[in-house]
Nucleic acid binder design. Sequence first.
DNA 1: GCTGACTCTGCACACGTGTGCGCCGCTCCC
DNA 2: GGGAGCGGCGCACACGTGTGCAGAGTCAGC
Lengths: 332, 332
Amino acid sequence: MTIKDIARAASVSHSTVSRALRDSPMVGRETADRIRRIAQESGYRASAVARSLATSRTRTIGVVVTSIADPFAAEVVSGIEEAADSQGYSVILADSNADPEREVRVVTALQERRVDGIVVTSSRVGALYVPLLAQMRVPIVLVNNQHPSEFVHSVMIGNREAALAAVNHLVALGHRRIAYLGDRFGHQSDTERFAGYREALEQADLPFTPELVMHGDGKLEGGEQAMCRLLSLAARPTAVFCYNDMSAVGALAGIRTRGLRIPEDISVVGFDDLPIARYTWPPLTTVRQPKRQMGRLAVERLLSHPTGIEENTTVPGELIVRASTAPLMEST
Amino acid sequence: MTIKDIARAASVSHSTVSRALRDSPMVGRETADRIRRIAQESGYRASAVARSLATSRTRTIGVVVTSIADPFAAEVVSGIEEAADSQGYSVILADSNADPEREVRVVTALQERRVDGIVVTSSRVGALYVPLLAQMRVPIVLVNNQHPSEFVHSVMIGNREAALAAVNHLVALGHRRIAYLGDRFGHQSDTERFAGYREALEQADLPFTPELVMHGDGKLEGGEQAMCRLLSLAARPTAVFCYNDMSAVGALAGIRTRGLRIPEDISVVGFDDLPIARYTWPPLTTVRQPKRQMGRLAVERLLSHPTGIEENTTVPGELIVRASTAPLMEST
DNA sequence: GCTGACTCTGCACACGTGTGCGCCGCTCCC
DNA sequence: GGGAGCGGCGCACACGTGTGCAGAGTCAGC
């Protein structure tokens, strides 16, 4: 069932059909109506692949994630999908699963599929495929990451400021031994949140203690393990600022396994404000990222700057205080 | 940069280049090597869209989800991606966001993009787009859902048996007032899990009490609200079997807000075994679904049964007993 | 040396849609 | 009445790759 079949049925040329279906003013009123009726009745669906070949635009965007099972990435992708759909674009999902070999494979695939743009979320700085991406003549938007290069835009959260606010919150509650539970993969977000942490300590005239910095994997397991290491310290922290909510939830579990109470014995702050954050016990104090909106913004940047100069958009985080943080107890 | 440019550089016809790059035995050894070297050096990437047009196969599979932000769907998609990648297929993600209008839009898009197959996960029975799907001449696999139709395969968990085992576990612990916290969208999974619940009651000679059945939305909010309704009953349940882990986590929060303890006052069982289930407090007793494997299986079915007769694959669930369930206390 | 078989390469067309340009017929105006 | 202008339509080619078939070249066997 192609455009030619419609043409035959309507006794016109295929060009006229093509124009009629695309609402071109070049075709007469009733001819167009007749053609559209026939197309409708026969259940005709234009071939996007033929159209792509002819127009050299595919109306697809590639989305690269480290893992779609990561809730943060999933929320961002949800926003991307929404914006893409509303503009008539489709999303090709490329899950690298943090496997370097697979990273280059999926990026090669996106290149062959001639996607009109690429959004990369939660990538590691210096990942193998970044140079590959750069050589494609296609706009790229990095979410929560930056890369010095042309064709690369970014949508970021104000990491340093948000981390500063989160740690200031702990300081204001009287905490002095505040740990940082980071991520070990060298994300730019981690570096910047850590910088905010240090800045808060400095502003409060608190000493920076290297032992109070531990690295997880940004996931539940790593968060728990890193927390356990923190709890084994001779002088353990009374509060922890975590790289993200998943780490924080892991930390909550680690703390409870030791028989300690939250927030009485130790306060915990996360980052992301995943849906689950309201439902942990106790509910998690965290920094809200407008994850869906960031996804939508990424698509907007992509489609409005076909190949312009680099542009970096920063959205603010918002500290959400719940019950996992409390004033320092006198006992310590 | 096309196949013709390579042809010119190698002083051969474009046909020979096409064959050389596809490792056809029809082309001479050193000619092929020369062509491949030139292609390599010039960074040539074949156009998947032109190839698709010529071969009328796109090597893409469409994945329809109600929401990619749902952790169960995300895990399944992760498995789908993995299997697709290993077979050289790409995934087009179509997130319907439970919006009927958008459902038909995304399915139309998949149709126009000429995907080679479709996996639908967590759909609602009788969703608007199911007939649309059926009329495409493309293999379809439903995950945790079935639909009587040709071209439709399915990969399911043994819902009834698993639910039976879960509720039997509660019965064995001495519980007699066991609630079912379901889903209100009419998923087939919900119906089947509910059937397993009733069967377990029957086998244990326990009466079925309609008030003990409440419906959430399969997400955190709905789980909490439904749980609150259950706790408002004059004779409240001592155990709850939940449709899925997200509902269960919501239920945990609802129970705690009432100042009750888990599992001392009330036992909770989930379904899915999401990563988070090990990290709730207390860790959640639940039924494990091999989510990634189900995704991989779906792709396998898709690619091995281009258009054969309908085939239904069922994988078993596994009860994982953790700390959210305990023997009934004497007090009640 | 001729013939047949085999290897390698190129020609030409196909896939389905978009589009520049030319042609036809009508209308309007001088 | 003739020419200009214009609306409506078709011709032909383009997009980049795959492939059936024919033809050119080589080699071995008789």
